[in-house]
Nucleic acid binder design. Structure first.
Length: 490
RNA sequence: GGUCGCGUGGCCGAGUGGCUAGGCAGAGGUCUGCAAAACCUCGUACAGCGGUUCGAAUCCGCUCGCGACCUCCA
């Protein structure tokens, strides 16, 4: 397969032509959620970005194994090593079993993914399900000389590692700067050096989540799971690793060090980082408390929200921005997206109703080429959407007879929308599907429209307008066109 | 403080040496009994100051403003 896809690689800071390690297979790993609280919009943006990456790779003919983990252990609540496991803490607060917390928020996460039409990954491994693999990796790191045990905990020796291998390349740091700027934290006395990070942590008494290990009861370090699971399912060398920009350092930097330390290989060839969602210029984050749950977004029940927005409106809104740029949330922008999305979907419906001609005045192939070029250029969804709007305009012009298309061209146009709007961008039509009414409604609407038509023909505009008004009140929009009357249920 | 990034028309947001991004809002027009929808036309924007160049929003330098990471975060 000849690749025309270019991807911006954070590691090299440039766009690179995508060449899979083992074509036509592609290994894609994305850092998943920590399931100790509800996902917020910023999380959704990240998973959405990589959903489109996954979709486009598949669409381009690759056989993609997409691994997105569930972090159900290992992140600490407070400062690094002195803290208590986030999930364990939440469990105590809510008087639940840790795994009950994990299940609850995992379910919630899946529901949110479903609502936003984000595809499930090929494998969704959990950290707790890969303790053995993680212990194994710790042992390999120790054997390679980059790990040391202190009193039941194992740390990664960053300084020693950096003598043999580059450390900090991904995030553009050098260890001397880091050293100078590292905060001195309580409870770090076990470490030989403040740059070092835990890969296995001793469980104190009362710590609920614990597993036996060669170093006593404990739990895996925060960065280890991704290294262990990506290696297990995608190999020592694979294609793409994605995640949020905020994971670049230290999380991804540590992952690389662990990979090299344990396997001799650095893991992914390409690192992709999605940028942050901001609210009035500030990063939306859990700690800032400026995010919304998806439910609040959809219902509009949040102080920052002037109204609710449908999941597809949000999806469209986010994809109108490149994944690598920050995207600022605002009601005004979301409302603009709502209208734009509706117009696009409307035009796609229109394409299906257009009449074919004997000849064409439109160039659908050009549109398709443009769509591909947009996505090939580092998944440039905003440009793709702009091309889809051109296609939408084309559809409208064909329908109104200002342009002509053969039936073959109409087919191509419909297929273009099918491919790029639905399959690649993952939009879906949100019409309220009420199966019982779905056959009745068109008949009723024809009846009503014909009544109004009769009224209009007899110049009884009062009646005609009344019908229109009352339909509008019911959420049905009447559209008079030169070809007749159409309607749209909002 | 260290490292990195950003600043585009009323709003959102692509582009990154010369060729219309696109959406929303606004103005005018076509169509219509009217309205809506659809379509057409329109704004001639790139933080500021210098420099490189035949030519810069796009490259370089400086200034101002904003942000991210350096601590769990997508």
């Amino acid at each position: 397969m000849e690749s025309t896809l270019k991807i911006y690689n954070t590691l090299t800071r440039q766009k690179e032509t995508f060449e899979p390690v083992n074509p036509p297979h592609v290994g894609l790993y994305v850092c998943g959620p920590t399931v100790y609280s509800d996902v917020h919009l910023g999380n959704v943006r990240s998973f959405l970005s990589f959903d489109v990456v996954y979709r486009y790779l598949r669409f381009s003919g690759y056989k993609v194994r997409y691994v997105r983990n569930i972090t159900d252990v290992g992140h600490l609540v407070d400062d690094a090593d002195s803290g208590e496991d986030k999930i364990a803490k939440k469990a105590r607060l809510e008087a639940l079993e840790p795994m009950e917390i994990v299940q609850k928020y995992t379910n919630g996460f899946h529901e949110v993914m479903r609502i936003f039409n984000i595809l499930p990954p090929s494998i969704e491994p959990t950290a707790t399900g890969h303790i053995i693999e993680q212990i194994d990796m710790v042992q390999k790191i120790i054997a390679a000389g980059y790990g040391y045990e202190v009193d039941g905990s194992v740390y990664f020796d960053v300084r020693k590692f950096s003598k043999d291998h580059p450390y900090g390349k991904l995030s553009g740091r050098n260890i001397d700067d880091l050293k100078a700027n590292t905060r001195e934290l309580d409870g770090q006395s076990d470490k030989r050096d403040s740059l070092d990070f835990a890969i296995w942590k001793r469980a104190e008494k009362g710590h609920i989540m614990r597993w036996p290990s060669p170093w006593g009861d404990g739990f895996p370090g925060w960065h280890l799971e991704c290294s262990a699971m990506s290696t297990k399912y995608l190999g020592k060398e694979f294609d793409i690793h994605g995640g949020g920009m905020d994971l670049k350092f230290p999380h991804h930097e540590c992952e690389i060090a662990q990979n090299v330390g344990a396997t001799g290989k650095s893991g992914p060839r390409i690192w992709m980082h999605g940028n942050m969602l901001t609210v009035t210029g500030r990063k939306m984050s859990k700690s800032e408390g400026n995010g919304f749950t998806p439910e609040e977004l959809i219902t509009g029940n949040h102080k920052l929200l002037e109204q609710g927005y449908s999941p597809m409106t949000v999806r469209f809104f986010m994809l109108q921005c490149h994944y690598g740029s920050t995207l600022d949330f605002s009601n005004e922008a979301l409302r603009a997206a709502e209208k734009g999305y509706a117009r696009l979907m409307e035009a796609i419906q229109t394409a299906g109703k257009a009449e074919a001609s004997n000849s064409s005045t439109v160039d659908i192939d050009k549109l398709r080429t443009d769509c591909q070029a947009a996505m090939d250029d580092d998944f440039n969804t905003p440009v793709l959407i702009s091309v889809l709007f051109e296609a939408a305009k084309t559809a409208n012009l064909i329908k109104s007879g200002q342009e002509k298309a053969t039936s073959a061209d109409l087919e191509k146009l419909i297929q273009l929308f099918e491919d790029y709007a639905f399959e690649v961008l993952g939009f879906s039509t949100e019409k309220s599907v009420d199966s019982a009414d779905s056959t009745l409604t068109p008949g009723l609407m024809d009846l009503i429209i014909n009544l109004r038509k009769s009224a209009k023909l007899s110049k009884d505009y009062a009646t005609a307008d009344q019908i229109r008004q009352q339909l509008t009140a019911l959420g049905i929009e009447i559209k008079d066109t030169p070809e007749g009357t159409d309607y749209k249920i909002n």
